Simulated scan of single mutants.
Amino acid sequence: MHYWKIRKVSKDCFVSFNGKRYSYLFRYVGQELKVKKPYLPSDQKPQDVKLEACKQFILLIENFLVVLLLNLANFFFNF
């Protein structure tokens, strides 16, 4: 479960949420964003969420490398 908040992107490209500042794209300066914070069940720790995010990032990198290698192989074998 998540809860949503509306936040505005400041002139220095940051969005404030729950006492922290997050950078965002320049083209969104002055616009409002819908920001969500995950609801953690009582038995789940923030470290578990960070670990899961790291796992997802590693999968993203692996997928990128596979596509890159396939494109390189396709380029060299069809050259």
Rank of each mutant, 00 (worst) to 15 (best):
P46S: 01
K45L: 15
D12C: 10
P41F: 09
F14A: 15
S16N: 08
K50L: 04
V35E: 07
P46F: 04
F17W: 02
Y24A: 14
F26Q: 10
L25M: 13
F17S: 00
Y22E: 02
L40W: 03
K34P: 04
C13T: 14
N18E: 15
L25N: 10
R21H: 06
D48T: 00
E52V: 08
E32I: 00
K20N: 13
C54N: 06
K55F: 14
L33N: 08
K37Q: 09
C54R: 07
C54Y: 11
S23H: 02
E32M: 03
D48A: 08
S42I: 04
P41W: 11
G19N: 01
Q31L: 13
S10F: 11
K34I: 11
P46T: 00
Y22V: 07
Q44V: 14
S42A: 12
Q44L: 10
L40E: 00
R27P: 08
Q47H: 00
D48P: 00
K55R: 15
R27F: 07
Q44A: 10
Q44M: 11
C54I: 13
R21S: 14
K55V: 15
C13G: 06
C54G: 03
V29W: 09
P46I: 03
P46A: 10
N18C: 13
R21V: 01
G30S: 03
D48F: 03
E32G: 07
Y39W: 10
V49I: 08
A53V: 03
E52D: 14
P46C: 00
K36G: 11
K34H: 04
P41E: 05
V15L: 06
R21P: 00
K55M: 13
Q44P: 01
F26P: 05
V49R: 08
P38L: 04
L51I: 05
K36M: 09
V35Y: 08
Y39S: 04
P41N: 03
R27H: 12
D12H: 03
G30I: 10
L51N: 12
Y24H: 11
K36T: 01
E32D: 12
V29G: 00
K45A: 06
K55L: 10
S16H: 04
Q47C: 01
V29L: 01
D43G: 01
A53N: 04
V29Y: 09
P41S: 02
S16F: 12
C13H: 15
Q31F: 15
K36E: 08
E52W: 06
L51K: 06
K37A: 15
D43W: 05
R27D: 13
K50V: 01
Y28C: 09
L40T: 04
Y24N: 10
K50G: 05
E52H: 13
F26D: 13
Y28N: 14
L51W: 05
P41K: 02
E52C: 03
D48L: 03
R27G: 09
P41V: 00
R27A: 13
